[in-house]
Amino acid sequence: MATGGRRGAAAAPLLVAVAALLLGAAGHLYPGEVCPGMDIRNNLTRLHELENCSVIEGHLQILLMFKTRPEDFRDLSFPKLIMITDYLLLFRVYGLESLKDLFPNLTVIRGSRLFFNYALVIFEMVHLKELGLYNLMNITRGSVRIEKNNELCYLATIDWSRILDSVEDNYIVLNKDDNEECGDICPGTAKGKTNCPATVINGQFVERCWTHSHCQKVCPTICKSHGCTAEGLCCHSECLGNCSQPDDPTKCVACRNFYLDGRCVETCPPPYYHFQDWRCVNFSFCQDLHHKCKNSRRQGCHQYVIHNNKCIPECPSGYTMNSSNLLCTPCLGPCPKVCHLLEGEKTIDSVTSAQELRGCTVINGSLIINIRGGNNLAAELEANLGLIEEISGYLKIRRSYALVSLSFFRKLRLIRGETLEIGNYSFYALDNQNLRQLWDWSKHNLTITQGKLFFHYNPKLCLSEIHKMEEVSGTKGRQERNDIALKTNGDQASCENELLKFSYIRTSFDKI
Rank of each mutant, 00 (worst) to 15 (best):
residue 275 F to C: 02
residue 279 R to N: 07
residue 295 N to S: 10
residue 104 P to K: 02
residue 195 N to I: 11
residue 40 I to T: 07
residue 258 F to G: 03
residue 302 H to E: 08
residue 335 C to E: 05
residue 122 I to Y: 00
residue 243 C to M: 00
residue 213 S to I: 06
residue 196 C to P: 13
residue 183 G to P: 10
residue 229 T to S: 11
residue 154 Y to M: 11
residue 297 R to M: 09
residue 196 C to V: 13
residue 276 Q to C: 04
residue 142 G to F: 01
residue 288 D to H: 07
residue 126 V to L: 15
residue 302 H to D: 11
residue 52 N to W: 02
residue 323 S to L: 11
residue 330 P to L: 07
residue 299 Q to F: 06
residue 317 S to F: 13
residue 170 N to Y: 03
residue 63 L to R: 09
residue 198 A to D: 11
residue 296 S to P: 05
residue 149 N to M: 02
residue 328 C to V: 03
residue 96 L to V: 09
residue 177 D to G: 15
residue 96 L to H: 00
residue 317 S to D: 10
residue 155 L to V: 15
residue 89 L to I: 12
residue 53 C to Q: 00
residue 124 E to W: 02
residue 110 R to V: 04
residue 180 E to Q: 14
residue 122 I to K: 00
residue 322 N to A: 13
residue 43 N to R: 07
residue 50 L to E: 01
residue 123 F to Y: 07
residue 240 L to D: 08
residue 120 L to Q: 00
residue 33 E to A: 15
residue 263 R to V: 07
residue 243 C to L: 00
residue 243 C to N: 00
residue 172 I to F: 04
residue 281 V to P: 00
residue 74 R to L: 02
residue 117 N to L: 06
residue 249 P to R: 07
residue 270 P to E: 08
residue 307 H to E: 08
residue 135 N to E: 04
residue 81 L to V: 05
residue 287 Q to W: 14
residue 328 C to N: 01
residue 241 G to D: 02
residue 287 Q to K: 04
residue 267 T to P: 02
residue 124 E to L: 02
residue 269 P to N: 01
residue 110 R to E: 06
residue 134 Y to W: 14
residue 316 P to Y: 04
residue 123 F to S: 15
residue 191 K to F: 13
residue 190 A to K: 06
residue 320 T to P: 03
residue 285 F to I: 04
residue 110 R to Y: 03
residue 309 N to T: 10
residue 50 L to D: 00
residue 171 Y to A: 11
residue 298 R to P: 10
residue 106 L to P: 00
residue 241 G to Q: 04
residue 42 N to Q: 11
residue 70 P to Y: 05
residue 329 T to R: 12
residue 42 N to T: 11
residue 275 F to G: 01
residue 148 K to S: 15
residue 62 I to L: 06
residue 332 L to Y: 05
residue 46 R to E: 10
residue 135 N to A: 12
residue 240 L to E: 02
residue 150 N to R: 14
residue 319 Y to C: 10
residue 72 D to E: 11
residue 303 Q to R: 11
residue 31 P to F: 12
residue 285 F to V: 02
residue 71 E to N: 11
residue 212 H to Y: 13
residue 208 R to P: 14
residue 108 V to L: 06
residue 215 C to F: 13
residue 310 K to W: 14
residue 288 D to V: 10
residue 176 K to A: 04
residue 298 R to N: 07
residue 285 F to R: 02
residue 83 M to N: 00
residue 175 N to W: 12
residue 208 R to F: 15
residue 179 N to S: 08
residue 117 N to Q: 09
residue 210 W to S: 07
residue 251 K to L: 08
residue 133 L to I: 09
residue 288 D to R: 15
residue 263 R to T: 11
residue 77 S to V: 07
residue 325 N to T: 05
residue 92 R to H: 10
residue 252 C to V: 00
residue 214 H to F: 14
residue 257 N to V: 01
residue 29 L to W: 11
residue 220 P to A: 01
residue 106 L to H: 02
residue 336 P to H: 13
residue 100 K to S: 14
residue 175 N to G: 12
residue 86 D to Y: 01
residue 284 S to I: 02
residue 29 L to F: 02
residue 144 V to Y: 02
residue 283 F to Q: 06
residue 212 H to N: 13
residue 165 D to E: 14
residue 198 A to W: 10
residue 166 S to L: 09
residue 257 N to M: 03
residue 253 V to E: 10
residue 56 I to Q: 00
